[in-house]
Design a protein around this nucleic acid. Structure first.
Lengths: 215, 215
DNA sequence: CTCTGTGAAGAAGTTCACAGCA
DNA sequence: TGCTGTGAACTTCTTCACAGAG
């Protein structure tokens, strides 16, 4: 109901709702209830209603939510009208996977530049993205890019992050295991593959699980 | 202090502490305080003390924690004495990245088998892992493997997951955007790359951030 | 002194349960 | 009737602040 500030936990779920609603809309679905949506995304229906209520009164009592209306509302909330340009540093296997990942189709995001140290890769194109030498990272103009994906080996992570900060990015999606030191107006999100895997294993060994099958 | 049940939030941080302590130990560090460790991992020192207190009284007042003692305690808690065997389904760019990722070195985990549909890949080896045909996934014996990584295209995700469940895995690390339907004694953790990227962008646009630079 | 371990307070997130609108 | 939106309860997590051990 309030537009004050959406809780972080809610914010993390919005992109998920958005994508599911896109699929529902494409397949011609007109209306959906919170419990039906909850089954698809495996989230309790009360949580979904609470989440959506933070955005405004988007549903109709006795009816549910109008898929396209909700979708266009979320598109607006998530800034999906505007293309988000992203750069990538480190074109190894992971970086390549990200370049081929179609962020554009569902999310209106695009990796517009990539940087790597490997001279064989520089000048080539993967997906639609041209690869530049890492030296150019410092000198290129990045005024229109505020987000970077960091997918370099751990050894170089902090120093590349320092350069990224100096180029003016305000967010870094960090795939390296290094906990980066950055000024505290820069947001860093971590995706730490071995921590994720190890956490899963730990939970399997220690949390017997009758609960829902979730995250 | 209690061994009852470690909070989930704590459990998710243990692998991180473990890795950092490994590095500290390797570099010869003998003792560390919660605030020093907190600076490295960017977590409040009180949270670290609370986390570690769930495992037992591992520190010494006025001294801090003995690095190697803490490390070997965590090694035990995280089952790091035993090799965890993992299988991978889907050897695209992401799957390849995971195969080359050295889970073994720091985490005593190993991808022992990989499956793909691509006949050109079947029979080859990436890293140290031999690639099998996806048909064999159903027929192979996987008694010693309880965790699978799912890195196939979205279209096939649910049906591969069904097969994985039938082979007896109890945990799936799911890199596809599909929210899998599985029996509720199976644990699924999601790593959804476009959701992560979109969430970061949303936070950049909406959460001005004076807070620490963190996740 | 220094630094842990923890009671107590606070903040954040989830779920229940139901009034009330369509 | 079938559903949302939301008070209120509950659960989980974080942080403060300090007694007390070394």
């Amino acid at each position: 109901m309030n537009q004050d500030k959406i809780p972080q936990a809610t914010a993390k779920r919005l992109p998920l709702y958005y994508r599911v609603l896109q699929h529902l809309s494409e397949s011609g679905k007109q209306r959906i209830s919170s419990s039906e949506l909850g089954e698809v995304v495996k989230i309790d229906s009360a949580t979904i209603r609470r989440d959506l209520s933070h955005l405004g009164a988007l549903g109709k009592k006795g009816y549910g939510y109008h898929v396209d209306r909700l979708l266009s509302f979320l598109r607006n909330v998530l800034n999906q009208d505007e293309l988000t340009k992203v750069m990538l540093v480190g074109v190894g296997n992971l970086g390549t996977a990200l370049l081929k990942y179609n962020f554009l189709k569902n999310n209106n995001m695009k990796i517009v530049k990539a940087y790597d140290t490997n001279a064989h890769k520089v000048g080539t194109t993967i997906g639609e993205t041209l690869i530049f030498s890492i030296q150019q990272l410092e000198t290129d103009n990045h005024d229109d890019i505020t987000v970077a994906i960091l997918a370099v080996p751990a050894e170089g992570a902090q120093s590349v992050a320092d350069v990224l900060v100096s180029t003016g990015v305000s967010g870094i999606l960090n795939f390296t295991p290094v906990r980066l030191s950055v000024p505290n107006d820069i947001r860093v999100h971590h995706i730490d593959l071995s921590v994720e895997l190890q956490t899963l294993v730990y939970f399997l060994n220690n949390y017997p699980l009758k609960e829902p099958g979730g995250e």
